[in-house]
């Protein structure tokens, strides 16, 4: 195809999709939410609210002492490879 023809076909596709997405906007909302499972994670009040904090693990660390391998989910893996159980 020539560029000109491609552009014409593309503009038609855009026009059609734009019309379609308006028509299906409501369905899509429900669907994407199910697909992504992402609603408000990452959006929160954070901590700017005038309370004081007990400072959970505010142990001041001695240099070097804290350079150890993490012990979270990472414990199940080592160096980027999954540990077979």
């Amino acid at each position: 195809m020539q560029n000109k023809q491609i552009i014409t076909a593309t503009l038609m596709a855009i026009g059609l999709s734009a019309a379609l997405s308006v028509a299906t906007a409501e369905d899509k909302k429900v669907e994407t939410e199910k697909c992504t499972g992402i609603v408000k994670a990452g959006m929160n009040d954070c901590a700017a609210n005038g309370h004081s904090c007990a400072g959970k693990a505010a142990k001041d660390s001695v240099a070097g002492e804290w350079i150890t391998v993490p012990k979270g989910t990472c414990e199940k893996i080592a160096g980027g490879t999954v540990v077979k159980e």
Partner: peptide
């Protein structure tokens, strides 16, 4: 960083964050 928090665990995350 909630996923990183879970990945490295409370202790490591806390120390790293404090630094």
């Amino acid at each position: 960083y909630p996923v990183c928090f879970e990945l490295v665990g409370t202790e490591f995350f806390g120390r790293t964050a404090h630094n």
